[in-house]
Simulated assay, not measured.
Amino acid sequence: MHSQPVLSRIRTTCAQLPNLVFAVAAFLPFALLILLALGLLWGTGSARAETANTCNGTSLVKQLAASNPQKLAEARAAAAAAPNGRGLLWKIEKPGVAPSWLFGTMHVTDPRVTALPSAAQAAFDTAGTVVIETIDILDPVKAQAALLTKPELTMFTDGTTLNELLSADETKIIEAELARRGIPLALVSRMKPWMIAGLVALPACELARKADGVEFLDIKIANAASDQGKQLLGLESIGEQMAAMADLPMEFHIQGLVETIKLADLMPDIMATMVDLYLQGEISQIMPVILAAGPADMEQDASGYAAFEERIVTMRNHVMAERAAPILDAGNAFIAIGALHLPGKQGLVALLEDAGYTVSAVR
């Protein structure tokens, strides 16, 4: 009896794909890799009580502080070791060039996130050029048409089905979670695993806001730039972002799907954690805190994060730094990208410093 509503939701999701794929690539750690892949689909059988305006998650930081303060201290120590792990807004300077700005975003619709901090708003207001990861998301019809020329990025096109790639235990886990949401596995069995994971990953409140057409932060920034007549540029194409996902081994995608489903009931708390730490500018704390508070086997499972980090974060950091250079050399730019791209020895802040720019956090 769920077939027609499910098909309708899948069609809706596919129509929104260019906007939603953008959200995969820039903020979340591997255990949450799929969280923002396809943010409109959710099952009618969901038992969660969230609505479009209410998220019921509790920050894992608060939970750890009460239940295991030592683990929280260890997570914070690990985060402190990451270069440039604190702060959302960075000033970029070079002699003889007007300063520019680098701002870390989170690709969600939470109104606390979509309201720019005052310093970031001031930087945006003065900038003549605004840059986001990809401007393809602003023309969904065109972007969807481009993606349809490469269906192998999102679907099995060689006759393979997901069932053939799963163990009996994995099939049972995935089938049960999809059934809870009124989605027969057979209906989506030709989708790539990361696409299916997007059906179950986000908390209901975030899904509902997306379904209602609420803009996530990057879209809001881009539309404001267009409305104000600023030059709007992108650092990547949506095809490049999709290809980055497709480049990861199939075993990795299967692991990501299974882990995402195992974490389904924890997702509201994970989202609350990410939002709270993001708003505090504590970007490098996000993954250590989630690992510390997650299931006992989560840290072992997270060994695959290195592959994700290399292809989805690090390699793209280098591409974005290279493409940002001529924009920064022109000066007066506001570059807004997923906050996960900022920290670390190969994060954008460090790469721009290596390229000769002076980059300083704006507190």
Rank of each mutant, 00 (worst) to 15 (best):
P69W: 11
W101L: 00
A73K: 14
G43W: 00
A146Y: 07
L162M: 15
A65P: 12
F30K: 00
G159R: 05
M155S: 03
P29K: 06
T54Q: 15
G96T: 02
A73G: 09
K142S: 14
M155H: 12
A80G: 10
A25C: 14
L148G: 10
L36D: 13
L36W: 08
K150V: 07
F124Q: 10
G159Q: 08
G87W: 05
S100C: 04
V61D: 11
G39D: 09
L36Q: 14
A75T: 07
H107M: 00
G87Y: 09
F124Y: 13
L36P: 09
P151F: 08
G159H: 02
L38F: 13
V130R: 01
L162Q: 10
A80F: 01
R76N: 03
T134K: 02
F27L: 08
G85W: 05
P151N: 08
D158Q: 11
S59W: 09
L36M: 13
F124P: 00
W42Y: 15
K71M: 12
F103P: 05
L153K: 07
V131P: 11
A37R: 03
M106E: 04
L88Y: 00
A119E: 09
A119W: 03
I135C: 10
L40Q: 11
F30P: 06
G57S: 06
V61T: 14
L116C: 02
V113W: 01
L32G: 04
A65G: 14
K62D: 15
Q121N: 12
F156N: 06
A31E: 13
A82V: 15
G43Y: 03
L162I: 13
T154E: 03
V97M: 08
A80T: 06
D139H: 08
S67V: 03
P69D: 14
T149M: 11
L60E: 13
A123I: 04
K91Y: 03
A26L: 07
L147S: 02
G87E: 01
A31Q: 13
P99K: 05
V61G: 11
G85T: 09
T149P: 04
A75P: 07
D139Y: 01
L116D: 07
T134G: 02
A66F: 12
L60V: 11
G87V: 04
K71L: 14
D158I: 00
T157R: 13
T154W: 08
N53L: 14
A25M: 11
W90H: 09
D158E: 12
G128R: 10
N84K: 09
F124H: 10
G128H: 10
A73P: 08
P95N: 05
P140G: 03
F103M: 03
A146H: 01
L88G: 06
V130E: 04
T154L: 14
